[in-house]
Lab assay of single mutants.
Amino acid sequence: MTVLPKDIPGDSLKVTVGTANGKPGDTVTVPVTFADVAKMKNVGTCNFYLGYDASLLEVVSVDAGPIVKNAAVNFSSSASNGTISFLFLDNTITDELITADGVFANIKFKLKSVTAKTTTPVTFKDGGAFGDGTMSKIASVTKTNGSVTIDP
C-alpha cells in the first residue's frame, strides 16, 4: 500500500482569532474563523484551546458560528481559569461536516476595569488537533492569535 501526501505544500487550514475593542463593562464579541476549508477536504472534527487573561476578560458565552451545522449536538465549549476549550465533531461522520469558510465560534467577553488603554492577547495554547471530512488528521493548520483592547 502506498500512502501519498494529501496536502499540497503551502496549503493549510487557517484558524484565526479576531479582535475587538471596548470600554470597561462593555461586552464584545471576538470571532474565531476558519478559511481554506474546502482545500483541506472539509473539517469533520477539531479540538483546540485559547488562552486569555482572566483578570482583564470575563467569558460571558461561547457560541457556535454559522458554519457549524447542528451545533447543539456537534459543538461544545467550556471556559475557566483563562482557557477556553473548543470541540467539534460531526456526529453523523459525513452529513454535518464544516464545508465552508466563515465564523466557527463567537466568544463574548465582558471587559474588566483598567486604568490605561490595554491590549490583551487571545492566543492559541498547545494541544488539540483538526481532522478532515474523512477524519484524517489535517497536518497543516495555520493559527493566528487575536486580541481585545480595553480603553477606559
Rank of each mutant, 00 (worst) to 15 (best):
M1I: 11
V3M: 06
V3D: 12
V3L: 12
V3C: 13
L4V: 13
L4T: 12
L4Y: 14
L4M: 11
P5C: 06
P5H: 08
P5Q: 05
P5N: 08
P5I: 07
P5R: 02
P5T: 08
K6H: 12
K6I: 14
K6M: 14
D7P: 11
I8M: 09
I8H: 07
P9K: 14
P9G: 14
G10H: 12
D11S: 13
D11R: 11
D11M: 14
S12Q: 08
L13V: 14
L13D: 05
K14P: 11
K14E: 14
K14N: 09
V15N: 08
V15Y: 05
T16Q: 10
V17C: 14
V17H: 11
V17F: 14
T19C: 11
T19W: 14
T19R: 13
T19E: 14
A20V: 11
A20G: 09
N21E: 11
N21T: 13
N21M: 10
N21I: 12
G22V: 13
K23F: 09
K23S: 11
P24A: 10
P24W: 14
P24K: 12
G25Y: 12
G25P: 06
G25V: 13
G25T: 11
D26A: 12
D26N: 11
D26S: 12
T27C: 13
T27G: 08
T27H: 12
V28L: 09
V28N: 07
V28T: 11
V28H: 09
V28I: 13
T29Q: 06
V30A: 10
V30M: 14
V32T: 08
V32S: 10
V32R: 02
T33G: 13
T33H: 10
T33R: 11
A35E: 09
D36E: 12
D36T: 08
D36Q: 11
V37W: 03
V37G: 10
A38F: 07
K39C: 13
K39F: 14
K39D: 11
M40G: 09
M40K: 07
K41S: 09
K41P: 10
K41W: 07
N42M: 09
N42T: 11
V43K: 02
G44R: 01
G44Q: 01
T45Q: 00
T45K: 02
T45R: 00
C46S: 03
C46W: 05
N47P: 00
N47S: 02
N47E: 00
F48C: 08
Y49T: 01
L50Q: 08
L50D: 07
G51R: 13
G51D: 14
G51T: 08
G51I: 12
G51L: 07
D53Y: 14
D53H: 10
A54P: 10
S55T: 12
S55A: 08
L57S: 10
L57A: 08
E58Q: 10
E58H: 08
V59W: 09
V60Y: 13
V60H: 12
V60K: 11
V60E: 10
V60N: 13
D63T: 14
D63V: 09
D63R: 13
D63K: 10
A64K: 06
A64M: 04
G65S: 10
G65R: 12
G65L: 09
G65P: 08
P66S: 12
P66F: 13
P66A: 12
P66G: 14
I67Y: 12
V68H: 10
V68C: 10
K69Q: 10
K69S: 11
K69G: 08
N70L: 04
N70I: 04
N70E: 08
N70R: 13
A71W: 04
A71D: 12
A72F: 13
N74V: 01
N74K: 04
F75E: 01
F75C: 05
S76F: 09
S76C: 07
S77N: 15
S77R: 15
S77T: 12
S78F: 15
S78Y: 15
A79K: 15
A79V: 15
A79W: 15
A79R: 15
S80I: 15
S80M: 15
N81P: 15
N81T: 15
N81K: 15
N81Y: 15
N81S: 15
G82Q: 15
G82P: 15
G82E: 15
G82C: 15
G82M: 15
T83C: 07
T83H: 14
T83W: 15
T83A: 09
I84P: 00
S85P: 03
S85I: 01
S85T: 04
S85D: 01
F86Y: 04
F86P: 01
L87A: 00
L87F: 03
L87D: 01
F88E: 01
F88Y: 04
L89C: 03
L89E: 00
L89T: 00
L89F: 02
L89N: 00
D90G: 04
N91A: 01
T92M: 04
I93V: 05
I93C: 02
T94P: 04
T94L: 08
T94V: 15
T94S: 04
D95P: 02
D95M: 01
D95S: 05
D95K: 02
E96H: 00
L97N: 03
L97R: 03
L97C: 03
I98C: 08
I98W: 01
I98Q: 02
I98N: 04
T99W: 05
T99D: 04
T99G: 07
T99P: 05
A100Y: 06
D101V: 06
D101E: 06
D101Q: 03
G102F: 04
V103P: 11
V103Y: 04
V103H: 06
V103G: 05
F104C: 02
F104I: 03
F104P: 00
F104Q: 04
A105P: 01
A105Y: 01
A105R: 01
A105N: 02
A105I: 03
N106H: 08
N106Y: 08
N106I: 04
N106L: 06
I107G: 00
I107N: 04
I107D: 02
I107Y: 02
K108H: 03
K108G: 04
K108T: 08
F109H: 02
F109Y: 04
K110V: 05
K110P: 01
K110A: 04
L111V: 07
L111Y: 03
L111H: 04
L111K: 04
K112S: 03
S113D: 07
S113N: 05
S113T: 06
S113A: 07
V114F: 05
V114P: 08
V114Q: 09
T115P: 06
T115Q: 09
T115L: 05
T115W: 05
T115H: 07
A116M: 05
A116Y: 04
A116Q: 05
A116F: 05
K117W: 01
T118P: 08
T118R: 10
T118A: 07
T118W: 05
T119D: 05
T120R: 14
T120K: 14
P121N: 08
P121W: 03
P121D: 05
P121I: 05
P121Q: 07
P121A: 06
V122I: 06
V122T: 07
V122Y: 02
V122H: 05
T123L: 06
T123R: 14
F124Q: 02
F124M: 01
K125V: 01
K125I: 03
D126K: 15
D126I: 15
G127C: 04
G127Y: 00
G128V: 03
G128Q: 02
A129T: 02
A129Y: 00
A129I: 01
A129G: 04
A129P: 00
F130V: 02
F130M: 04
G131N: 00
G131I: 00
G131K: 02
G131P: 01
D132Q: 04
D132G: 03
G133Y: 04
G133Q: 05
G133F: 06
T134V: 05
T134P: 01
T134F: 06
T134S: 07
M135V: 03
M135S: 01
M135L: 03
M135A: 00
S136G: 06
S136M: 05
S136K: 03
S136V: 01
S136P: 01
K137S: 00
K137T: 02
I138R: 01
I138C: 09
I138V: 08
A139D: 05
S140K: 14
S140P: 10
S140G: 12
S140V: 14
S140A: 07
S140Y: 05
V141Y: 01
V141D: 03
V141F: 02
V141G: 04
V141H: 02
V141T: 07
T142L: 08
T142V: 06
T142E: 04
T142P: 05
K143H: 01
K143D: 00
T144F: 04
T144P: 06
T144N: 05
N145D: 05
N145G: 10
G146M: 04
G146E: 01
S147M: 06
S147H: 04
S147Q: 05
S147N: 05
S147T: 06
S147K: 05
V148Q: 04
V148D: 01
V148Y: 05
V148H: 00
V148N: 06
T149H: 15
T149N: 14
I150N: 14
I150F: 15
D151G: 15
D151K: 14
D151F: 15
P152H: 14
P152R: 15
